[in-house]
Design a protein around this nucleic acid. Structure first.
Length: 839
RNA sequence: GCGGAUGUGGCGAAAUUGGCAGACGCGCCAGACUUAGGAUCUGGUGGGCAACCGUGGGGGUUCAAGUCCCUCCAUCCGCACCA
C-alpha cells in the first residue's frame, strides 16, 4: 500500500463514520477551535498553510482524544481585491475563480486529513452569508456606530480610480506609474474609537500572547495629556500635548497640511506657497512623514497664535510631520524638548527656549526626558509631572485648556470603491437622505453582470438595474450606495455565524450562540494582531451592547503560528522561486509525512526554513512504529482473552493489516519486573506526561521528541532484558501510537488496527501518565565548588539538605577540590545542584 | 520613524523559567550485517592536545546568567484601502 492509498483509505473511513462531526447534543464538552479562515486568492495552499492548518488540526485531534466535543469548522474569506485583480488580468470573473479556488483548496484540506465539519462551511461572497454582513452593517448604522465623513483616498488621475495602499508604489500608480493624488470623498466609517477604552481593558481578561496584547495596546495608543487652545485671530487652534510642562518653551504652532483651519488663517501672501506644500504632502506616505530622520519641511501660514499664558505671539506653520488623524492635527512646537521640533526649528531659524532641566543647566538640547522646570515663571522648580497638572489647571481657569485623553486608534474606514465585495445596504434618496435597506429586502445582491474595469466610475454605478431603486421611505425613485464593504467587515463576525450556518432567519441563533461561544481557542497569524483581531473584538463588543451577545470578548485563547520560509531562509515567494508546494509531497510520501515533518522540525510559534530532509525523518519514525506494531500487535494474553476477541478480523468494520500470527503467552503475561522494567515504565510515563504538557502549549516538536525517547528506551530494553515483559512493551507501543496519533492521523489508524482495535483511534483516549511511576529513588545532582561543577552524584530523592551536603563533601573529587580551604557558604537547590563556596 | 520579535554546534532546534547549555533529530565519524548500500542496527560527535573556552558584541547584578539589568550590532515582521 502506498502512503497515498493508505491515507485515502482512512479518509474514506473518517467520512463514512462521520469522525469530524460535531455532536450538537453534548454542549457540556464542546470545544470551539477556530482556525482563521482562508483567503482563497491563490489557487492552492503552500507549505505555510499546511503548517498552520495541519498542526491546528493536530491540536484539535489531541483535544478530541482528551474528551472534547470538537467543533472545528472551516470557511472561505472570498471577497477582496486580489480576486478582482486576478479576474481583470485573466479576463475572467471573480465569482468563477473563487468557486474554482475553493474547490481546489477544499480538496487539499481533505487530502491533508483535516477534521473539519463541512456541515458548517461558510463562504463570505455567497448571498446567504453577506446578507448578514449587511445586517451587521445596518445594526451598527442604526446604533450610530456607522457614519459617513470626508476622508482622503489614494487616487490615480490617469486611471480615474481609487487605489489601495498596496497598489501605490513609491507614490505612483502600480499600473500606469502616474503620481498618486489625495482625493477627499465621503466614506463610511465604523466608530471603533468609541470602544477604545473597552478594547484596552478587555485585554486583561483574555489568554492571549503578551506581545500581541502589547501590540494592541500600542495600536490603541492611549495617551493622557492636555488640550490647549491657542487664539489665532478669530479662530482657535486646539493642540494636544502630553508635555504641558513645556508650554513656556513653545516657539511656534504646527498644523497638519490637511487641517481644516489652514485655508481660513493663511494670509493672502502665503496662499500659493501653502497650497503647493499641501499638494506635495499629499503624495507622501504617513510612515515617511512621521519619521524623525526624514528632513522636516514646512511652510509659514503668515498667521500668529497667542500663547495662552504669556500672551506672546507665535508663528503658525504647516508641516507634514504633523498628522491630521492623530490628536487634534495640531501640535505646539517646543524645539528644546522634542527631537522633531528641534530639527524643524533649526531649519527654519525658530527660537529654541529651554524650559526643563534634566541633569545640568547647560546640557545639550534637545532633552526629551522629564526634569525640573526653568524659565516658566511661577512654575519654576516643579517637576515635569507636577507641572503638567499645575499648568493645565492654570489654563483651565481661563478656559484655555483641560486634561484630555486621546487614542491613536482611528475609526475604521469600511468603504471601498470596488466591485468584488459586499454591497453597502443603504439607499440615497433625494428627499429622505440616507435610508437603510429594510431587513426584509436583504440581501442587496452583488450584480454579476457588471463591467468592473477601473475607468473612473465605481463598478456598481455602471449597473442601472442595481443603482436605480425605490426609496423604502417615500416610494420615490432613489439610488443605491455603489461602494462595497472592506473585507475585514466580512471577517469581523464569521466566528459568530459558524454554529448557525444554514439558518436563513437569523445571522446567529441567540441560544446556540450562548452555548457555543465565545471561541475557546483561535489559531492564526501574527499579522492579524492589530487589524482583524481588533475589528473582531470591536464587533463583538458592539453586538454585545446591542443585546445580541452575552460575552464581550470573542476569543478566550489565542495562538499564533510562525512562518515557514523557503529552503533558502527567505520568505516563500514566486519572485525568489522558493515556493514549496505540499502537493508534490502528498502524492509521493503522504500528508502525514508533511504534517509530522512540520510538527517535529519547528517551534510552532516561530516557524523556520523548510528542509526536505524532514520528510525522511518522518518516514524513518513511521517505519519504527510500524515495526513495533508488527512485533507487539499480535501479542495476546491468552486465546480466550478479551483482547483476542477484539482482534478478530471478522468483527472488524475495516480490514486490519496483515500481521504475524498471534503470539500466545501461557496464562498471564510474563511477570518479569526488575530495574530495567522500572526504568522503561518511568520513561513511558515521563514521555506521556511531558508530551501532554507540551502539546497543550503548542510545543509539538518537543512532544514528539519525548516519543522518540520512548522508542529509544524500548530498543534499549529489548537489547538489555534477558526476558521480555511483553505486557509492558505492548503498553508502551499502545501509548506511543495513541500519543503520536494527532501528528500522523492516517498512519495511527493503521497502527491502531495492527494492535487489534476495530474502532477509530480518534475515539480512544489520549494516554495519561501514571504519576506513581514517576517517583524515582535517587536523583542525580551536580556538585559545584565556587560555582564550578566538579562532579555529579546520585542522592536519595527526598534527602534532607544536610544529608546532601554530607554526601557531597564526602565525595573524593570534592574533597580534593576543597583541599585545605574552608567552606564559608553552602547552597542547595533541591534535586538540581549543590554549590559549596570555599575560601 | 513608531511598534513587536529574533540571534544558542556544521544544520533544524531544546533548556523544568536564575541552577549540570546543546534534549530530540539531521549531518558527520567508526563498527556490525550485507554481493552491494543513499537500507537497517550499534557506538561516538560543541571547540581545544590540554589547562580551559563556549548561547550576536561589550558592560553589570548574583554563590550561580542563554535566562535579569544597561548598552551596542545584525536580521525579520506590522504600521490602518492586501488579507
Amino acid at each position: 500500500m502506498t502512503p497515498l492509498e493508505l491515507e485515502q483509505k482512512w479518509q474514506k473511513y473518517w467520512k463514512e463514520n462521520n469522525i469530524a462531526a460535531f455532536d450538537e447534543t453534548d454542549l457540556e464538552h464542546k470545544y470551539y477551535l477556530l482556525q482563521m479562515f482562508i483567503y482563497p486568492s491563490a489557487a492552492r495552499m503552500h507549505m505555510g498553510h499546511y503548517f498552520n492548518y495541519g498542526l491546528a488540526d493536530s491540536y484539535a485531534r489531541f483535544k478530541k482524544m482528551c474528551g472534547a466535543n470538537l467543533f472545528q469548522p472551516m470557511g472561505f474569506d472570498s471577497f477582496g481585491l486580489p480576486s478582482e485583480n486576478y479576474a481583470l488580468k485573466t479576463n475572467t470573473h471573480p465569482q468563477a475563480n473563487t468557486a474554482e479556488n475553493i474547490k481546489n483548496i477544499e480538496a487539499q484540506y481533505n487530502s491533508m486529513g483535516a477534521l473539519y465539519d463541512w456541515n458548517y462551511k461558510l463562504t463570505t461572497s455567497e448571498p446567504d452569508y453577506y446578507k448578514w454582513t449587511q445586517w451587521v452593517f445596518l445594526e451598527l448604522f442604526k446604533a450610530g456606530l456607522a457614519y459617513q465623513k470626508e476622508a482622503a483616498v489614494n487616487f490615480c488621475p490617469k486611471c480615474h480610480t481609487v487605489l489601495a495602499n498596496e497598489q501605490v508604489v513609491d507614490g505612483a500608480c502600480e499600473r500606469c506609474e502616474s503620481a498618486v493624488e489625495q482625493k477627499y470623498m465621503k466614506q463610511w466609517f465604523f466608530k471603533t474609537t468609541a470602544y477604545a477604552e473597552q478594547l484596552l481593558n478587555g485585554l486583561d481578561t483574555i489568554d492571549w500572547p503578551e506581545n500581541t496584547k502589547l501590540l494592541q495596546r500600542n495600536w490603541i495608543g492611549k495617551s493622557q495629556g492636555s488640550a490647549i487652545w491657542f487664539k489665532c485671530g478669530n479662530e482657535t487652534i486646539e493642540v494636544f500635548t502630553t508635555r504641558a510642562d513645556t508650554l513656556f518653551g513653545v516657539s511656534y504652532i504646527v498644523l497638519a497640511p490637511e487641517h481644516g483651519l489652514v485655508p481660513k488663517i493663511t494670509i493672502p501672501a502665503q496662499k500659493s506657497a501653502v497650497n503647493d506644500y499641501i499638494k506635495q504632502a499629499g503624495l507622501k506616505k504617513e510612515i515617511e512623514r512621521s519619521s524623525a530622520t526624514e528632513e522636516k519641511t514646512g511652510v509659514f501660514t503668515g498667521a500668529y497664535a497667542v500663547h495662552p499664558l504669556t500672551q506672546k505671539e507665535v508663528p503658525v506653520w504647516i508641516a507634514d510631520y504633523c498628522i491630521a488623524s492623530y490628536g487634534t492635527g495640531a501640535v505646539m512646537g517646543v524645539p528644546a524638548h522634542d527631537e522633531r521640533d528641534y530639527k524643524f526649528a533649526q531649519k527654519y531659524k525658530l527660537p529654541v527656549n529651554r524650559v526643563v532641566v534634566v541633569n545640568k543647566p547647560n546640557e545639550d538640547l534637545p532633552t526629551t526626558e522629564y526634569g525640573k522646570l526653568v524659565n516658566s515663571r511661577d512654575f519654576d522648580g516643579l517637576t515635569s509631572d507636577e507641572a503638567k497638572l499645575a499648568i493645565t489647571t492654570e489654563l483651565a481657569k481661563t478656559g484655555a485648556g483641560e486634561l484630555k485623553t486621546t487614542y491613536r486608534l482611528r475609526d475604521w474606514s469600511v468603504s471601498r470603491q470596488r466591485y468584488w465585495g459586499c454591497p453597502i445596504p443603504v439607499i440615497h434618496c433625494p428627499h429622505c437622505g440616507v435610508v437603510p435597506v429594510p431587513e426584509e429586502q436583504l440581501p442587496v445582491k452583488l450584480p454579476m453582470d457588471v463591467d468592473f474595469k477601473p475607468d473612473g466610475t465605481p463598478p456598481l454605478a455602471k449597473s442601472a438595474d442595481f443603482v436605480n431603486c425605490i426609496c423604502p421611505k417615500c416610494n420615490k425613485p432613489a439610488k443605491r450606495e455603489v461602494e462595497t464593504l472592506d473585507t475585514f467587515v466580512c471577517s469581523s463576525w464569521y466566528f459568530l455565524r459558524y454554529p448557525s450556518v444554514g439558518r436563513n432567519d437569523v445571522p446567529f441563533d441567540k441560544e446556540i450562540t450562548k452555548r457555543m461561544l465565545p471561541v475557546d481557542i483561535c489559531i492564526g497569524g501574527r499579522e492579524h494582531a492589530c487589524m482583524h483581531l481588533i475589528f473582531a473584538r470591536f464587533m463583538t463588543m458592539a453586538l454585545y451592547d446591542l443585546g445580541y451577545l452575552n460575552f464581550k470578548e470573542p476569543f478566550k485563547r489565542l495562538v499564533h503560528q510562525g512562518m515557514i520560509l523557503g529552503p533558502d531562509g527567505q520568505k516563500m515567494s514566486k519572485r525568489f522561486g522558493n515556493v514549496v508546494n505540499p502537493d508534490d509531497y502528498t502524492s509521493k510520501y503522504g500528508s502525514d509525512a508533511i504534517r509530522f515533518a512540520l510538527a517535529f522540525g519547528f517551534n510552532f510559534t516561530m516557524g523556520g526554513p523548510w528542509s526536505d530532509t524532514l520528510i525522511a525523518v518522518a518516514q524513518r519514525f513511521f517505519d519504527k512504529i510500524t515495526k513495533l506494531c508488527g512485533k507487539y500487535g499480535s501479542v495476546i494474553a491468552s486465546p480466550t482473552s478479551e483482547a483476542n476477541k477484539r482482534s478478530n478480523p471478522s468483527a472488524s468494520s475495516h480490514t486490519p493489516s496483515p500481521t504475524a500470527p498471534p503470539l500466545y503467552l501461557k496464562g498471564e503475561f510474563s511477570v518479569v519486573y526488575g530495574k530495567l522494567e522500572k526504568d522503561l515504565e518511568f520513561t513511558l510515563n515521563d514521555s506521556i506526561k511531558r508530551a501532554r504538557d507540551d502539546i497543550e502549549v503548542f510545543s509539538f516538536n518537543t512532544a514528539l521528541a519525548r516519543y522518540m525517547e520512548l522508542i529509544n528506551a524500548i530498543g534499549k530494553y529489548e537489547k538489555e532484558a534477558k526476558e521480555i515483559n511483553y505486557k509492558l512493551v505492548r503498553q508502551c507501543v499502545t501509548s506511543l501510537v495513541l500519543g503520536v496519533a494527532p501528528f500522523a492521523p492516517h498512519h495511527a489508524e493503521e497502527w491502531w488496527s495492527m494492535l487489534g482495535n476495530i474502532t477509530s483511534i480518534f475515539k480512544a483516549s489520549y494516554p495519561g501518565a501514571d504519576y506513581s511511576k514517576l517517583v524515582q529513588d535517587t536523583v542525580n545532582i551536580a556538585i559545584q565548588v565556587n560555582s564550578k561543577i566538579i562532579v555529579t552524584i546520585d542522592v536519595p530523592t527526598n534527602a534532607a539538605e544536610e544529608e546532601v551536603f554530607a554526601l557531597a563533601e564526602a565525595t573524593d573529587k570534592i574533597k580534593a577540590a576543597i583541599s585545605g580551604r574552608t567552606i564559608v557558604k553552602k547552597i542547595y537547590v533541591k534535586g538540581r545542584i549543590v554549590n559549596l563556596i570555599v575560601k
